[in-house]
Amino acid sequence: MTSTMRDAFVTSTEEVLADPRTTVVLADISADAFEPAAARYPERVINVGIREQLMIGVAGGLALTGQRPVVHSYAPFLVERAYEQIKLDLDHQGVGAVLVGIGGSYDRAAAGRTHLGPADVALIDTLHGWTVHVPGHPDEVRPLLRDVVCGQDSAYLRLSIRTNSRAYPEAGDLRVVRDAGPGAPLLVAVGPVLDAAVAATADRAVTVAYTHRPRPFDTTGLRTLAGTEVILVEPYLAGTSARVVSEALADRPHRLLALGVGREDLRRYGSAEDHEHWHGLDAAGLRRSVDAFLT
């Protein structure tokens, strides 16, 4: 069985716990997976129970003493439920933490709306100075986690059960996956939507670039690669990065199509693949949107 992003996160976190500053804060989610680490580092693997406000408050307090918190839960509980704690207990105190979410967008579609978290990156984007990583493959998780844990600032690592077939660990800056030549429309795929984006444009003259780091967005790379048409494909709320792309290209005429998860509560269960289809993020849906935009 292939290792998941969550497995990669747990293994990588066990490694960074070798640094006595690293402190993991959990709210029951994944506590089983962290049991060996908790046995080894009982004072630095903290499970507060099902208390997400406290989880972030504790992270803020830990950071005030100089510890480096790694905070983990399901995306809707980690980011949406405790948003004010993120804003005040981390940012307003002038301290940072690494937030690691699983189950973003529709990974657990059968669990219904309460477990869907498409707005997480948009919410984090209301804050200042955060790094956001959206890995598209389990092999991208370890270097990204190590990198952000070594820093001081806040970072959000958004893990998913959806993955691409290939890992690009160095794709913080835009990485061209298929080059259609100068002036061609540019499609930027963020995280696990890359394979569908490549398939959707296989026989189209579209340059495809990949990134797992929507914040800070590689605006320099974007300006280098972009012609007149830019297509953004994100695995979370549609338009989340439209602001950044528009600002980066404000001085030149361009057209932008921003694709992602819609705002409507579909009130449907099914699988992540089903929701990808319904939100037009599978290859066929992306092709329809791209063709309509370019013709």
């Binding site: 630095r44 406000q53 972030i56 408050g57 307090g61 830990l62 005030l64």
Partner: peptide, 19 residues
Amino acid sequence: SLGHGLGLGVGTALGLRAQ
């Protein structure tokens, strides 16, 4: 905003204990 100090205090106490 009310209700933030005690959580931060718990985290501070945990950080001091870890050190």
